[in-house]
């Protein structure tokens, strides 16, 4: 996939630069971009590491465990077949709670465990639902993009949070709605 993306970006941009007579800027842009990648990584590095430390603290304090207990009940409604197996349910609620808290390196392994268990039981619609839940970002604190805003000199990097929550909720609602509709159309 990345091969196509990069190939498209490089080749079409190069052709366009010739057509639009932007050859001087295009030649410079490559070098500038490489330089910008390094300074960008450094400029967001501090905030990424700080936030990663806070995430680690969250995990060790058991915030994820508390949240996953709270999520059991609503998740049982969304995943009736999987709720029969306690292990699948544990992996599932661990995955969703880690996603909400932004603990990326805890979310994926738990999600994959849940996905494998669902595939084994043959509950393919629930596996689709798990994927849809994971593609609708439900992160409470958008820390990476806040670090990017901070590095670019934002007044208050986190002031986008209410807007992010609103968009996340809209996309989650549409995800669940589309899942319910498409599930019926598919079978």
């Amino acid at each position: 996939m990345m091969t196509y993306v990069l190939c498209m970006l490089y080749c079409i941009s190069t052709i366009c630069a010739f057509i639009f007579g932007r050859t001087a800027q295009a030649g410079q842009a490559l070098m500038e971009g490489a330089q910008a990648a390094i300074s960008f990584a450094i400029s967001i590095g501090g905030a990424i590491c700080l936030w990663s430390g806070i995430c680690e603290l969250m995990e060790r304090c058991g915030a994820a465990a508390i949240l996953s207990r709270l999520l059991r009940r609503p998740l049982k409604k969304l995943f009736p077949q999987s709720s029969e197996s306690p292990e699948t349910m544990a992996a599932l609620s661990e995955n969703v709670s880690a996603n909400i808290l932004g603990l990326g390196n805890a979310a994926t392994p738990a999600g994959i465990r849940a996905a494998k268990a669902m595939a084994k039981r043959g509950s393919r619609d629930e596996l689709c639902m798990l994927v849809v839940l994971n593609t609708a970002s439900i992160q409470l604190i958008p820390s990476t993009i806040a670090a990017v805003r901070q590095a670019a000199g934002a007044q208050a990097a986190f002031d986008i949070i209410p807007a992010v929550w609103f968009s996340s909720l809209v996309s989650l609602a549409v995800a669940l709605g589309a899942a319910n509709l498409l599930r019926r159309l598919w079978s």
């Binding site: 490089y10 941009s13 190069t14 932007r22 500038e32 971009g33 490489a34």
Partner: peptide, 11 residues
């Protein structure tokens, strides 16, 4: 980044 910068500069 270079790809995105090139894209941006190319018009």
């Amino acid at each position: 980044f270079p790809a995105i910068y090139l894209f941006r500069a190319s018009g």
